[in-house]
Amino acid sequence: MALRTNGAGVSLLVGVVLLYVGAESLVKGARGVSTDLGVRAAVAGVTVVAFATTAPELFVAVVGQVEKTTTIGLGAVIGSNVANICLVLGLSALVRPLAVSRETVRRHLPFMALAAVLLVGLGSDGTLSTLDGGALLLALVAFTAVLLHGVPDADDADGSGEEHADDGAVVADGGTGFAPPLGRLAAVAPRDLLFLVVGLGLLFVGARRLVDGGTAALYLLGGSDRLVGVTVLALGTSLPELAASLVSAVRGHADFSVGNVVGSNIYNVLAVLGVLTLLSPIRVPTSVVDTDFPVLLGATAFCVLLLVTRGRVGRVAGVLLLGGYAGYVSLLV
């Protein structure tokens, strides 16, 4: 028994490390490619980087789906979203209070709320069907369209018809935030592509080890699929978001910390679960409907209310978020 538990623990640790290293490599490559193609930093932060840090959830969920443990994938998404709001934002706010831009509040935050409401509304009948997945993917298309083609805020422009990225570089476009990328494909650095490929490979291997190790460890301790998904796997797959947000908070880039969480939560639901339901319908246990859904809605509502009314996440709010997460985990255990 002890030997099997130790083996599961080693597999779990290796999986977490590979996921973290893979996500870092993927983020670095994604950011490099976005820069090579002329994508402005503000859009890249909420799209490319947020989607890259969501890749661990996608890989874990897909591996779990292939292994016929669909509850693990669902639990990993819900648990990761709750951890992103309560744990990641909570810890980041303790490091430094987080202010958020008007663009994030007005254009990105509504989609995070929509994603949570859609998930709860579609899954409350006990199943996420292929049709439900199509609705999630349509919402993802709408979110992407708003990001890529929305009109920038007035304070983003310098009055010359050009828009400046966060690093001060000028991005030529017609109001979309993008330079024409097709003609710049040759400018993509091979090193950036290598980071992308290596990152994806490490994420796949790490996801498999994390699924195997986390499942074995909790099953040996009497845990359920739901507990595996919303605790061990959710925490492990939230490490990229946690690392990125903490580093951003330390360096004073608060809006990136918040944007990373908001974007990641949107992609977790709309992209990850949307893709999973295309593979096969997902059964939603009663325990998820009765406990996890209300917690997800509560955490999302608190985050939205906080950012809309105050425009920041202070240290007191950070403590409340961490306390809420501790209470949620204690309910599961």
Rank of each mutant, 00 (worst) to 15 (best):
M1Y: 12
L12D: 03
V16L: 15
V16G: 06
V17H: 07
L19N: 08
V21A: 14
G22Y: 02
G22I: 05
A30F: 03
V33K: 07
L37R: 10
R40P: 05
R40T: 13
V43E: 01
A44H: 02
V46A: 07
V46F: 01
A50E: 08
F51I: 15
A52Y: 04
A52P: 04
T54M: 00
P56I: 07
L58M: 15
V60R: 06
V66E: 02
E67M: 15
K68W: 10
K68R: 15
T69K: 15
T70Q: 13
T71Y: 00
G75D: 05
A76M: 07
V77G: 10
V82G: 06
I85C: 07
L91Y: 04
A93W: 04
R96F: 09
R96T: 13
L98W: 04
V100L: 09
R102A: 13
E103S: 13
H108M: 09
L109P: 00
L109N: 01
L109Y: 05
A113K: 11
L122R: 00
L122F: 10
S124A: 14
S124V: 15
G126R: 01
G126N: 02
T127D: 02
T127W: 10
G133I: 10
A135S: 10
V146D: 08
H149V: 13
V151C: 02
P152F: 09
E163N: 03
D167R: 07
G177P: 07
A179L: 12
P180N: 11
A186L: 13
A186F: 12
L196H: 01
L200G: 15
V205W: 13
V205F: 14
V205N: 05
A207L: 03
R209L: 12
Y219P: 00
G223K: 06
V228F: 02
V230R: 00
L242M: 10
V247N: 08
S248C: 06
V250F: 14
A254F: 07
A254H: 03
N268Y: 07
N268G: 04
G274R: 06
L279F: 14
P281I: 08
T286F: 03
P294M: 01
V295E: 05
V295A: 12
A301C: 03
A301H: 04
F302T: 14
V304F: 10
G311W: 06
R312F: 00
R312M: 11
V313Y: 04
G314R: 10
L320T: 09
L320Q: 08
L321V: 04
G323N: 01
G324W: 05
Y325V: 00
S330F: 14
S330L: 15
